[in-house]
Simulated assay, not measured.
Amino acid sequence: MLSEAVRLREAGRPEEARERLVALAAELPDDAEVAYQTAWVHDTLGLEAEAVPYYERALRGTGLSDDDRRGALLGLGSTYRILGRYEEAVTTLGAGATEFPDDGGLKTFLAMALYNTGRTHDAMETLLTLLVTTSKDPEIAGYRPAIEEYAKDLDATVR
């Protein structure tokens, strides 16, 4: 039944998928994968507040693949941010970025949440560091040492 609901979501039929997943989540409250898929379909439908408890349940459970755990952390953190729960977003996305240090998506959403909490320095440091470590642009690569230095302190002047 889970695979059928996922296929419905992927086929552009999220309302039908949601109905099946909500019923399945009620039957299997300890199934982390079902909870994750249920959260995801709620997010797809713009039902962020309804997605939160499912994301939280998925992350409390066991059995998520690394990709699904990463997706649940990003989904929950992003959803917290959309709902104005900025500190929870920073905590969740920060934990995700620590657990999955190579995930640029988590770091990008973390930077947005940091910005929302007024931590603009941390947000810029996160984004600039991500930029210089992932960009293939030769112009950026040429300035990598300077950008890395400025990422630490954008307010620095000539010393």
Rank of each mutant, 00 (worst) to 15 (best):
K136H: 13
H42S: 00
L24I: 05
A49N: 07
R9N: 09
E33I: 07
K107R: 15
T91D: 12
L76Q: 04
G104T: 10
D66W: 07
M1W: 11
Y86K: 13
L2D: 00
A5L: 00
E88A: 12
T126Q: 08
V158E: 04
Y86A: 11
D43L: 15
L73C: 02
T92Q: 06
Y54D: 01
G84L: 04
T98F: 15
S3V: 12
L59V: 01
E10I: 08
Y54I: 00
D103Y: 09
L128H: 03
R60Y: 08
L131F: 12
H42L: 03
Y80P: 07
V52S: 09
P29S: 02
D30Q: 08
A39P: 05
A32R: 00
A35T: 03
A97F: 11
R57N: 05
V22N: 01
S3N: 14
S135P: 09
L47W: 08
Y143F: 12
G61L: 06
P53G: 05
H121A: 15
L106I: 10
L93H: 09
R69Y: 08
T92D: 06
E139G: 12
D43A: 11
I147L: 11
Q37M: 09
V90R: 04
L76H: 00
R20M: 13
L45H: 03
L8M: 13
L59A: 03
R57S: 06
L114K: 05
M112P: 04
T129I: 13
A35K: 01
H121G: 15
L2I: 07
G12S: 01
A25R: 02
T79V: 12
H42G: 00
A26I: 00
L128E: 13
V52C: 06
D102R: 10
D31A: 01
E27Q: 08
T120M: 09
L73A: 01
D122M: 10
A26W: 08
G96A: 02
Y86D: 07
V22H: 02
T79E: 02
P53F: 09
K152P: 00
E88F: 05
E125F: 12
A25N: 08
V90N: 00
A113I: 06
T62D: 13
L76V: 10
D67N: 13
D43S: 11
A51V: 02
D30R: 14
D43M: 10
L106H: 05
D155H: 03
E16S: 07
Y86V: 11
Y80R: 08
R144V: 05
D66A: 15
D122L: 14
P29M: 03
T134R: 14
S65V: 12
L64T: 07
K136P: 12
L74K: 14
E19W: 09
L76K: 04
H121K: 14
D68A: 15
E50P: 07
Y54E: 02
D122W: 11
L93M: 06
